[in-house]
Design a binder for these strands. Structure first.
Lengths: 215, 215
DNA sequence: CGTTTCGTTGACCGATCGGTCAAGTTTGCC
DNA sequence: GGCAAACTTGACCGATCGGTCAACGAAACG
């Protein structure tokens, strides 16, 4: 559908639908959430939904797209004037974890969307973009000799893996402190890259609680 | 349903359903795959399905359960008489990647099942079991001073993350060589732990290939 | 042979799905 | 006020879903 002309009221309604649908999708999953669930929960007729969206699928894609855009914007803004590529990586990783913590529903939607044929390709593209961002920092770091010369593509996806799974387990599942989790993710990743953690003031034990005597 | 008494013919039919349904679920996703799809593809009547399974959901759970069991069995058998905890970790990680490469459909099912309310809890339990296996090796390694004293729970999930995401990208998506990917996963993880990679004969550059990457 | 249990058929069921639409109400604008 | 465009309603549609069931064939066993 070409965009429809919306009054302020229309825009508000549209956002309302997006917001409510997002929570439902995250809570029950995409397939089990019906359009009827959405409009009933909002207390409106079914036609309202189809006034603003061509289909349930289109709505979901829009949610995914704007979330991906928002995540990337956040990551870029955080590292924009950082000259050290390893620091750019570390800050980007942490920003990604923090964003996921602040948008848990969207993070859950990402996880599902990767597993569904309909959305997998667009999700793949989005993840590839993030991976490529990381690859460019990794290549810089390798060129500088800050980390060993390892296939940056492999490293980038390893980082994505640590970030997404640790976020899912410790933030999504256990609701632990996001900043602490982010620090643990960064620490593990820098070690995996072969970077000198101490040089960045990041101890491998940064995720130890209270007592720990450092190695 | 309590188990039904099956003749050899029945057992064979049942396995046939499981095998075919697994490929369909992996190819189209769980929800989009209907019971009609399964029985039609097999060229049998719908009643056959419900003779062997109480419901579509029960079938799916059974597929997941037996797959989880098989993966863990494989991991344990590989490391059973390895005394060095770091080697146990490395070998267990590699075994997991290799298993996933040999059972791509099951690996995909795992990814989906984690995102669906119905199956998430059983999947969480399965992953937690794997994580706990890792935690015990990590604790041993820490006690021996082989790796720095970092929260083993965090480390275990980081490892799971690297394994699952790299497997998905490089094996599932790009069909690269499983052994090579496994080596890259192990290398990254050992670095993340703070282990001495060289001491195990694992170079951080073990995942670099001299020439071009395969398609 | 007869009988029992296993295995199979496919029409059928109620529910629910995503989506349509003719009709009505509200809003912005001249 | 008048009129068009924006917005809303909810009954309705065809399709499909997971699941049922009465009836029937095949085998094992006496």
């Amino acid at each position: 559908m070409a965009t429809r002309r919306l009054t302020p009221r229309g825009v508000e309604r549209r956002n309302q639908i997006i917001a409510f649908a997002t929570t439902l999708f995250a809570a029950k999953g995409y397939h089990p959430t019906s359009v009827a669930d959405i409009v009933d929960g909002l207390g409106v007729g079914k036609g309202v939904f189809y006034w603003y969206f061509e289909s349930k699928e289109e709505l979901f894609v829009e949610i995914l797209r704007s979330a991906q855009k928002d995540l990337r914007r956040r990551q870029r803004s955080v590292i924009i004037d950082e000259v050290d590529p390893v620091r750019r990586l570390a800050d980007g990783i942490a920003a990604g974890v923090l964003w996921s913590a602040e948008h848990r529903e969207l993070f859950q939607l990402f996880e599902f969307a990767q597993t569904d044929e309909r959305f997998a390709s667009s999700m793949r593209a989005g993840r590839a973009t993030l991976a490529n961002d990381a690859v460019s920092h990794l290549s810089d770091a390798i060129a500088l000799g800050a980390i060993p010369d390892t296939d940056p593509e492999r490293l980038a996806w390893a980082i994505l893996g640590v970030s997404s799974v640790m976020t899912k387990e410790f933030i999504d599942e256990r609701s632990e402190d996001a900043a602490e989790v982010a620090a643990a993710v960064v620490s593990f990743c820098l070690g995996g890259l072969g970077a000198d953690r101490a040089a960045l003031g990041i101890s491998p034990a940064s995720s130890i609680r209270a007592s720990g005597a450092p190695a």
